[in-house]
Design a protein around this nucleic acid. Structure first.
Length: 574
RNA sequence: UGGGGGAUAGUUCAACGGCAGAACAGCAGGUUCUGGCCCUGUCGAUCUUGGUUCGAAUCCAGGUCCCCCAGCCA
């Protein structure tokens, strides 16, 4: 009994993504360590953002991996801000990042850390390295240092300050800390190997002088550790077992090892994976910032932005993003996933969970000539065919309706199944409808359809068993809620915005029609009090969510993603 | 002509010396009160040249191509 219960609980708790969890090379590495008892079987990871920007879908992959691996192996994941450069970092970003990580569904519990928490320890260690003759204060200017560093193919040469005595270095570093020097006057460097093929090992800077207040340590310090000097030790201090990072840090690993070994402290295992790229998407902070600053989008949370706030506002769900990450997999080669895959997992999630509703975006008036003027019927409509528990609702039907302009053609091509003169279709959950007459204005534009219904088909089925080729969604004009709908297309016209031609800027690739506002749409009255963030499937159209701009007087919707549309595909191909 | 990493269907990921598979995308059907969902079928790949082996995507050697590194950014 107890066993079957447990089995059932497990069955229902495991999502399909987890069931299909792949044994990618990082899981393999972790399991290998666990088998060998390398970290006492423990798995402890961390997500280490710099608070100098908003999180985007690329970060989601890292978050999913960092927190996900800890979750999968019964470990823990810290959130640690790598806040080593006060010139660039702000509290605003710290708050935003925490909000986004939580939204993605992850919890660092009481393990919120900052690299700045370790500034004292890092300083002590720096002194220790100086005493061991492994670090020195350098007075080379920035330009000189670049020259001395050599190039990719030529070795560097030693700084003339490289052989200062331990006492002198200790004294100089102390003065650096005390603010005796201006920014740029000198730095503390690790004494490693100016001839190394790995440029990271050519006496990297450990500390530089920045006379700026830090969001967390205030004016306590005027010297700040470089990321490379802080990162490995921060992981070490936190007892991070598996330090997951992107491939560009692969050749920093020897440097982290050098610091860890020189200091004789705990040694995490770093594993590198390829960062996520998406077609039709720019991900760099610089480009994202330009989109915002140059007003190509309305802000960091514009629904067209690949930021987590943008995607959240667009109507993406954390479940869909996580399922996508799992499906996209983990590798080491530089790749670009197709955005269609992301959209597939979005639709898959939304299909399961969205209440269905009828909404007409581009209204065409239909008058039912054989329907009583004042009559209103309440039609039963299914809320979600994928979820019987969701139940049904009533939708009002009356003499004057709106249907979608796309659902009528006066002169239909062969494969067009929808309404046309003399043709009968079904109004979903209502009646069979036949178009009797097309009314046009002076310009020849269709302004109204005169139609009749078959009263015997109430509810949507014909007692004589006759079939129709299509079913249309509709709203009752007298009952509909007028609302605004914002349709989003890809922000960029090129799937690979990284590959620009000579003299081309990525902003040249911006789609001028990425946002279309439809100010006069009609949605069924059941949505009257829909709160911001709630999501629906507009039947036959797509998934839509209520935008934060929505008011009780006028609902505003974002199109999250359209339904797959074979008819549109057919039209495009012909 | 330095160092590090990588190369499997259109895309992303599997196959860990033993029948090259999946998902997404595409195409063709079926089903349907959503041209949705679902179902079925189908197209389609081991960078290259040698070697080892009964057998190689996998091991070895050479070549080619791609990505990252010359911040007092992270």
């Amino acid at each position: 009994m107890a066993e079957t219960d447990r089995d059932r609980v497990q069955d229902t708790c495991e999502t399909s993504a987890e069931e299909s969890a792949r044994l990618h090379f990082i899981r393999e590495a972790i399991e290998e360590d666990n088998r060998a008892g390398r970290f006492g079987g423990k798995v402890h990871t961390r997500f280490p953002p710099e608070p100098n920007g908003y999180l985007h879908i690329g970060h989601a992959k890292a978050i999913w991996l960092d927190f996900g691996m800890a979750q999968d192996y019964g470990g823990q994941c810290n959130l640690r801000f790598d806040d080593t450069n006060p010139a660039k970092e702000e509290q605003e970003y710290i708050d935003a990042i925490m909000e986004d990580v939580r939204w993605l569904g992850y919890d660092w519990e009481d393990r919120l850390f900052f690299a700045s928490d370790y500034f004292d320890q890092l300083y002590v260690w720096a002194v220790q390295l100086i005493q061991a003759g492994k670090a020195y204060v350098d007075h080379l200017s920035q330009e000189e240092m670049r020259e001395y560093r050599g190039t990719l193919t030529e070795p560097g040469k030693d700084s003339p300050y490289r052989n200062r005595s331990v006492e002198e270095n200790l004294n100089l570093f102390e003065q650096m800390k005390n603010g005796a020097f201006a920014e740029g006057e000198c730095v503390l460097r690790a004494k490693i190997d100016m001839k190394s093929g790995n440029i990271n090992l050519r006496d990297p800077v450990m500390y530089r002088i920045i006379h700026a207040p830090h969001p967390r340590t205030g004016s306590k310090w005027c010297i700040y550790p470089m990321y490379d000097y802080a990162h490995g030790q921060s992981d070490s201090i936190e007892g991070v077992t598996h330090s997951l990072c992107t491939t560009e840090y692969e050749d920093h690993r020897p440097l982290y090892d050098w610091f860890l070994d020189a200091l004789g402290i705990f040694h995490p295992r770093q594993i590198e994976f390829a960062r996520l790229n998406l077609t039709y998407t720019v991900m760099s902070k610089r480009r994202l910032l330009r989109l915002v600053q140059e007003k190509y989008v309305s802000g960091w949370d514009d629904p067209r932005m690949p930021t987590l706030r943008g995607m959240r506002r667009r109507g993406y769900t954390p479940e869909a993003i996580r399922a996508f990450c799992e499906a996209a997999g983990v590798g080491k080669r530089a790749t670009t996933s197709e955005i269609e895959m992301l959209e597939h997992y979005l639709r898959q999630d939304l299909n399961k969970r969205s209440p269905r509703v009828m909404a007409v975006l581009r209204p065409l008036k239909v008058v039912i000539t054989n329907y009583p003027d004042d009559q209103v019927e309440e039609m039963d409509a299914v809320n979600n065919p994928e979820d019987p528990e969701a139940g049904t609702r009533k939708v009002p039907f009356s003499k004057v309706l709106y249907i979608e302009q796309d659902d009528f053609m006066e002169d239909p091509p062969k494969k067009f199944y929808r309404l046309a003169p003399g043709r009968e279709v079904r109004l979903r959950y209502a009646y069979f409808l036949t178009c009797q007459e097309v009314i046009k204005d002076d310009l020849g534009q269709i302004v109204e359809l005169r139609c009749t219904i078959d009263p015997a088909t109430r509810g949507g089925d014909a007692p004589d068993g006759r079939k129709v080729k299509s079913t249309l969604h509709w709203v009752s004009a007298a009952h509909a809620l007028e609302s605004e709908v914002r349709i989003y297309e890809r922000l960029l016209t090129n799937p690979d915005p990284g590959a620009l031609e000579e003299g081309q800027d990525f902003t040249d690739l911006i789609n001028p029609n990425s946002l279309e506002v439809l100010p006069t749409c009609y949605v069924e009255p059941s949505m009257k009090d829909a709160p911001a963030g709630s999501f629906y499937q507009f039947e036959r159209l797509g998934y839509y969510c209520v935008d934060s701009d929505s008011t009780p007087d006028k609902l505003v919707f974002n199109r999250t993603v359209g339904l797959r549309d074979d008819w549109a595909k057919l039209q495009k191909s012909s």
